[in-house]
């Protein structure tokens, strides 16, 4: 068993989830509270990683973050190393790849809150950020849990993006899903079997816990309406 790959996967998923929530809460609030035609474009952009093949996303990121573009060169100058083929690069890729899984449940949760509550808060002098943290987040806390769990699991299971921008460097970018790919390629089916089973059990346990929570109170894990 390659515990290093497992630890790396969990670390990547945790870091990605924290960053995603920090991005998705204001983004979802903007989508729900904001007004204007451009919001539709923003919402489409936030949902794009859902339908785009991971390899397309990974390829664009690889090119964008590599030495061929000004952005890539700028990042390299700041970090001292290129983002591609590094753990930081994986985090960037994962955040973009799992963005819809954090944004969609939050948008559904925020949108389900009675708009009169938001109006009442405004009339009492509250700023938008105060409304988000005193009303939206506490009232949609179940959606917040769903967003966190789904982002985490989706990051654990990603493959295409990681392969494209991370490569396969043990301890730096080799996650469990890459490890399985490796093991199968080396025809080590027994090892692949163990690793795959571990991933399966992990994901199943977390999802079962999440849906168990839902049973006790009616709530919406998956935000399509």
């Amino acid at each position: 068993m390659d515990w290093q790959a497992l630890a790396l996967t969990l670390k990547l998923a945790s870091v990605t989830t924290v960053i995603l929530l920090a991005i998705a809460i204001p983004l979802a609030s903007l989508l729900v509270l904001g007004r204007g035609r451009w919001l539709a474009a923003l919402e489409a952009l936030a949902a794009l990683p859902l339908v785009l093949p991971p390899t397309v996303l990974g390829f664009f990121l690889l090119v964008l973050l590599g030495p061929r573009t000004a952005v890539g060169r700028g990042i390299t100058a700041i970090l001292g190393h290129p983002l591609a083929f590094s753990f930081d690069g994986l985090v960037v890729g994962s955040v973009i790849y799992s963005l819809p899984f954090a944004v969609q449940p939050l948008v559904a949760g925020f949108a389900a809150i009675d708009p009169a509550l938001v109006d009442a808060a405004r009339l009492l002098g509250a700023s938008s950020s105060r409304i988000v943290f005193t009303l939206l987040v506490p009232l949609a806390r179940r959606s917040l849990v769903a967003a966190a769990v789904l982002s985490f699991l989706h990051t654990v299971g990603e493959f295409g993006v990681v392969l494209m921008i991370g490569g396969n460097i043990p301890g730096a970018t080799r996650t469990i899903s890459i490890l399985i790919f490796d093991q199968v390629e080396a025809l080590d089916y027994a090892a692949a079997n163990r690793t795959a089973l571990l991933l399966l059990v992990l994901c199943f346990a977390i999802l079962a816990a999440l849906y168990g929570l839902r049973k006790r109170a009616a709530w919406n894990v998956w935000g399509w309406k």
């Binding site: 009169a116 509550l117 009442a120 808060a121 005193t134 009303l135 506490p138």
Partner: peptide, 9 residues
């Protein structure tokens, strides 16, 4: 407001 809109939490 007509609905009062007290914060339920």
């Amino acid at each position: 407001l007509q609905s009062l809109a007290l914060f339920p939490h």
